[in-house]
Design a protein around this nucleic acid. Sequence first.
DNA 1: ATGGCTACGATCCGTAGA
Length: 254
Amino acid sequence: MKLATWNVNSLRVRLPHLTDWLAQAQPDIVCLQELKCEDAKFPRTELQAAGYQSASSGQKTYNGVAILSRSPLHDVSAGIAGFQDEQKRVVVATVDGVRVICVYCPNGQAVGSEKYDYKLRWFAALKEYIAAELSRHPMLAVGGDFNVAPEDRDVHDPKAWEGQVHVSAPERAAWRALLALGLKDSFRLFEQPEKTYSWWDYRMMGFRRNAGLRIDQILLSAALAARCTASTVDKAPRKLERPSDHAPVIAEIS
DNA sequence: ATGGCTACGATCCGTAGA
């Protein structure tokens, strides 16, 4: 089973890149973020033609998440149970016995801002939600844009980023609290090339300079981590014309 | 140097992303 996550930064703009990538990479399950697209306008038939069923939780202009799958999606629900939120950031489904949670974690804007506080509250709620899901689903994966670079090696210029949003100590603690539930960062289960990132700023030729952050991850429960055979970032779509600023992350499960 | 791209929904600029 090949599981992927990709922040597409507008599903409608990126649909050609997405369908090309699906045909090339042949993932079984894909978590998508930043659809910026209402469910009514979700390109369900186009994706069906590409061989994927979908469960989406979208909204206009901002946020929006979806899970694509070649196998049927069961027990679909949207949002974090018990956490009131207008912003569409979570969708969950069971596919082939695996509980898949797709997350678009808040950006946080700036340390100390209202959005930063929301980010930390949101992470606390996510942790409780994952804990509850884990108790019922030992085979569980959380794929998404976490908007946290967990360690300095996930940051192109740790000095410049020190204390900033995406790397601040409270954000990293919130991210590590998810691992404390028993989850593993699939990417770090393996030897990886130095300076591997999943997001690069559109400005200042961020991608050419490899000025990036590794903020997109796939977290696996112990049962899945034990069966994970590879995890990579696929930089190819980031090289295309009019790319998303994020690249897909992949985890392969035997 | 606090800018710089890109997408969006609304104009001909503001908001948001990271």
